[in-house]
Design a protein around this nucleic acid. Structure first.
Length: 669
RNA sequence: GGGCGCGUAGCUCAAACGGAUAGAGCAUCGGAUUUCUAAUCCGAGGGUUGCAGGUUCAAUUCCUGCCGCGCCUACCA
């Protein structure tokens, strides 16, 4: 609703500027006034125009306000401050339209979107950092789907890499386990925890003697080659750990559609197909001298920079036009002929856009409780399977440390002439989750003096240093359960457990989304376990409170929000909303109207944190209102219905926004 | 060295496109409920937005330099 009127306002302003001044502004900025008394939209454009029109901003604002005439849906425009134009909407009409619900986007870009997230090495338990990735990715998927887009969710599995090799080294060399013994272990409940410790031990073992790295090298070779005992063990382990990851994420209601694995990228020779195209297009150059002699290399970042003609002339002058300086070289194919991970990634991304000319085999791998199937790659798969890949846009939820590698893949696509695809390739970059020194100490890790002085300490799988995802979820549930037990002793244990789980998930998912992506989360257990203030449970509690009012009053809140017009007449809407005196009520309607606007903003900026803020603001407004205006004791029946309508809409928008964040509100709290 | 990012209240963070008095949460202190549940609300204190310049009617936001911190910069993945 908010968004619709904003567009209308911009259109009318643009028309007016053309008519009155013969001006065409490329962008007309619309803001939100700092306080609701000032209006609903603010336009600072008079300041911009002042110079062009050689008039003071206030004068221009006056002319616009006086000349623009009535705009449908708006009460008036008014001049404010040094030259702001503030617009007030017709509150009753606005509210009535908001109650009915939003018309979907008229113009929706066509084509499927692929979101890749999680991508946890299948060699150990998932930790808090992985949770941030998965929650961000899953929320973004929900945002896109709410906006009407078709989305495939992929979780890339590096099952042939060093990390898996290290755990195998642990099993075979440190623990001297047989395949049968490993198989038994892998069927144990938390096999990923076992691997967590073993991985740390293997890393330690390498540190003890560099010679031990030889063992890893051989294991790695066997895995990549496939068709041998080591590869079979690798498969066994990675599949078992992967299942654990899917279970962990399923606890948070995070699902995937397809799990492409590196083993298939190797065995189906994706790289060969990509290599041929890259060579043909001259994207890769063969180095015949220097430190990278014998390698196929790509320019690191020069391609992304627009070179000035002067720079090019300089290069011609030094006869160095084609040669990439060694510092700018990124090795794609090693001198022994093997391809590095960036190369494989290029091939994989060509597949994503349907540019490779090859496809995975597919088989069903995991069925979620709701019946949804998750597929996995295989060499020879089922004949009948969903069509993955070949999409119009991709989003890769990958931490900021890999931005350079991501850029190389994008540049490779561009260099191959696929600009369209490169433009629709988004590295959804986010910062890592680290631990506060206090939190690390509480978890029993020994810290150096240097570490204690740091603002945060990076999680390290190699050191076994970090907070495991399942442990965190368990702690949250335990903590919530204690509170629920105390508050609702009359409920059955399973009911209380269900509520505690909802609260725990709400707390965790909200926590992962309240920070902007570019901020390193200095994880603090106490803070994460908090259920007060700006948290998921605060928002959930707000929904519960609203629901309670309807229950006690004998109304169905969903019916109420579906049919506001059946409870509140247009005249009452007008009475109770218009005028300064009713700002407290109007604020709730206005804030509620912004959900779709916020969702658009989240997608455009790839920043789900805006939605968390929106939820918090709605909840805050509600709670203030809740204290100030008792509803059920209201004697004026019309006013009572209006107040109920108000909270029905707030509740609806809260539930809708929380759903996008993957959070549900419990029946009671 | 080069690249990317960060620096805002005691702590953790907001502030899309430069805009009105830089906002929250936590912590601290003081209050509120026999009311629709206090996982709540109200109030107080707390800021030279790292430093120095510049652009602009307007800078936390853009530009330059400096200081501090982090990440990337492997024929690892």
């Amino acid at each position: 609703m908010y968004r619709h009127l904003e567009h209308r306002l911009v259109d009318r302003i643009r028309d007016f500027l053309r008519r009155a001044y013969a001006l065409d502004l490329p962008r007309i900025v619309i803001e939100q006034p700092p306080r609701v008394e000032l209006g609903d939209y603010a336009l600072p454009l008079a300041f911009d125009l002042a110079k062009k029109l050689r008039k003071p901003p206030r004068k221009i604002a006056e002319e616009i306000v006086a000349g623009i005439g009535p705009i449908e849906g708006f009460e008036k425009l008014e001049l404010a401050g040094a030259g702001y134009i503030n617009a007030r909407v017709q509150r009753d009409q606005f509210a009535a339209a908001l109650a009915v619900g939003e018309a979907p986007h008229a113009t929706l870009p066509s084509g499927k979107i692929l979101v890749e997230h999680s991508s946890i090495n299948p060699n150990k338990a998932a930790h808090v950092g992985h949770l941030r990735n998965a929650v961000l990715g899953d929320t973004f998927v929900r945002l896109l789907r709410l906006a009407g887009r078709e989305v495939d969710v992929q979780n890339y599995i590096d099952n042939t890499g060093v990390q898996v090799a290290d755990v195998i080294v642990g099993f075979l060399n440190l623990e001297k386990k047989s395949r049968a013994e490993i198989e038994v272990l892998a069927s144990q409940p938390r096999f990923d925890y076992y691997c967590w410790d073993l991985y740390a031990r293997a890393s330690q073992w390498y540190a003890e003697d560099k010679q031990n790295l030889q063992v890893r090298h051989h294991v790695l070779q066997d895995i990549e080659e496939g068709g041998n005992e080591t590869a079979a063990i690798a498969d066994l382990i990675s599949i078992a750990v992967l299942r654990r990851h899917l279970e962990t994420m399923d606890r948070l209601d995070i699902e995937y559609d397809f799990l492409p694995r590196e083993s298939e990228i190797l065995h189906l020779h994706f790289w060969d197909a990509a290599f041929a195209k890259l060579k043909e297009a001259g994207v890769l150059t063969f180095e015949s001298e220097g430190k990278n002699k014998g390698c196929w290399v790509m320019r690191r970042d020069g391609a992304s920079r627009e070179e000035t003609s002067d720079e090019i002339l300089t290069k011609i002058g030094t006869q160095d036009l084609d040669r990439i300086s060694e510092d700018d070289q990124k090795v794609i194919v090693r001198s022994n002929g093997t391809v590095g991970y960036v190369g494989k990634d290029i091939a994989y991304h060509m597949w994503k856009f349907g540019l490779l000319g090859r496809d995975f085999g597919y088989r069903k791998f995991y069925r979620y409780p709701n019946g949804h199937d998750c597929w996995i790659s295989t060499t020879v798969g089922a004949l009948d399977h969903p069509h993955f890949g070949d999409v119009a846009e991709i989003y890769n939820v990958i931490d900021a440390r890999q931005s350079e590698a991501q850029n190389i893949v994008i540049e490779a696509l561009r260099a191959l002439g696929h600009n369209e695809q490169a433009d629709h390739y988004t590295h959804f970059s986010y910062e890592m989750v680290a631990l506060t020194p206090r939190c690390a100490a509480e978890l029993g890790y020994q810290l150096s003096e240097e570490d204690k002085a740091r603002p945060y300490i990076e999680v390290s799988g190699r050191k076994g240093f970090g907070v495991k995802a399942d442990d965190l979820i368990d702690s949250l549930i335990t903590s919530a359960k204690k509170e629920v037990n105390a508050r609702h002793p009359q409920l059955s244990d399973s009911e209380r457990a269900g509520i505690a789980t909802q609260i725990a998930i709400g707390a965790l998912r909200y926590f992962m989304l309240k920070f902007t992506k570019s901020s390193v989360i200095a994880f603090d257990l106490r803070e994460a376990l908090s259920f007060e203030g700006e948290t998921g449970p605060y928002a959930q509690y707000t929904v519960v409170r609203a629901t309670n009012i309807f229950r006690k009053g004998g109304f169905d809140p969903d019916n109420f929000s579906r049919d506001v017009a059946g409870y509140v007449s247009p005249g009452d809407l007008l009475n109770f909303l218009t005028g300064e005196a009713n700002n407290d009520f109007w604020e709730l309607w206005l804030a509620s109207s912004k959900t779709s606007y916020i969702i658009d903003q989240c997608i455009a900026t790839t920043e789900p944190a805006h939605l968390a803020k929106h939820v918090f603001q709605l909840a805050q407004l509600f709670n203030t209102f809740y204290h100030r205006y008792p509803i059920l004791t209201e004697i004026d029946e019309k006013r009572k219905m209006f107040l109920l309508a108000t909270i029905a809409i707030v509740r609806r928008e809260l539930i809708r926004s929380l759903a996008v964040m993957g959070i549900t509100a419990p029946p009671v709290m």
